[in-house]
């Protein structure tokens, strides 16, 4: 056979095109690597500075009184965070589920669209603006309280939970709904006994994601609850309580390195909580979606 008069190898123009292709691929890989490197640097620098200051006292004791920043712990802030986020969840979870049920199951299409749009717009409002809002309606007249902070956090959580719930409600096969309705079961029973239970896993993981998100919120709490440097553990939501995020913020610009190392330890604690819960919730959600065939 004669030597073929053409080649299938990359020559001339194609070689240039392939070089561009490889260059772009390398840039994309570099960008991904950069993002992972930044994550690693943040996690490692928080971890290396924070883990060293962690001890049992950090979780079980309050800030030592007087001008002695060494020793003691941030129990008061942990309790405060739990109270703040707990009450916010108690407000936002039922409301969010109800809104989602209305939007996906009961509302006429036009009202559903309005409600959905309102949720999305709420979601885009800067959290500091929500803080100012709660300040003007509550704190300006009644003073600071953990409850005011919880309400701000609940306003942030509501659209997150409602949209997550709506999504899983949409995934519940309509055959389940129809089967129940066809048996003569009323609509509200179908919703409460069939639809919501089969969407429960998704609702809970969506809520967990919302908790992970607001546990890290600081800005809306600044005006609403306490920012003092010393405090004791207190679970009364009508008192101004501190939170881990407020402690990180207020300790971060203290010149005393003992405060800074407490800020790192608090940051490390918060970071672990947020990353672990959101990762676990995302994994659970992915599995749940697969189960429902989303």
């Amino acid at each position: 056979m004669n030597e073929p008069a053409f080649t299938l190898k990359a020559t001339g123009r194609l070689r240039r095109r392939q070089l561009v292709n490889q260059g772009m691929g390398a840039l994309a890989a570099g960008a991904a690597l950069l993002a992972v490197a930044v994550l690693a640097i943040v996690v490692i620098s928080v971890g290396s500075r924070g883990a060293g200051s962690l001890n049992l006292a950090f979780f079980t004791q309050n800030q030592a009184q007087g001008f002695n920043p060494k020793g003691g712990g941030v129990l008061f802030a942990i309790v405060g965070s739990v109270v703040l986020v707990g009450i916010a969840t108690l407000i936002a979870l039922p409301l969010g589920v109800l809104v989602a049920v209305y939007v996906s199951e009961l509302a006429p299409p036009r009202l559903a669209r309005v409600a959905r749009m309102a949720l999305d717009i709420s979601n885009g409002i800067p959290t500091i603006v929500i803080g100012i809002f709660v300040f003007t309606i509550l704190v300006a007249a009644h003073g600071q309280s953990a409850l005011a902070g919880s309400i701000a956090l609940a306003i942030i959580m509501l659209p997150l939970i409602a949209r997550a719930t709506e999504e899983v409600l949409l995934l519940v096969p309509s055959s389940q709904r129809e089967a129940s309705l066809a048996l003569g079961v009323s609509r509200w029973r179908t919703t409460v006994q069939v639809v919501i239970p089969s969407a429960l896993g998704g609702i809970l993981t969506g809520t967990t994601l919302a908790i992970a998100r607001v546990a890290g919120e600081t800005a809306p709490l600044l005006f609403l609850t306490s920012l003092g440097t010393s405090s004791t553990a207190d679970a009364n939501p009508l008192h101004p309580l501190q939170s881990l995020t407020l402690v990180i913020f207020s300790y971060s610009d203290q010149a005393d390195p003992a405060y800074q190392s407490k800020a790192w330890a608090a940051a490390f604690t918060l970071m672990c909580f947020v990353l672990v819960t959101s990762l676990a919730a995302k994994l659970a959600l992915a599995r749940y979606r697969k189960k429902l065939g989303g």
Binding site: N2, P4, T7, L8, K9, A10, L14, Q18
Partner: peptide, 20 residues
């Protein structure tokens, strides 16, 4: 083989193959 050239031979560029 494509017109006598091993289509999966060394140096053959899939992009060039698909153009043809």
């Amino acid at each position: 083989r494509y017109r006598g050239i091993d289509l999966y031979g060394p140096g053959v560029d899939a992009v060039e193959v698909r153009r043809r």
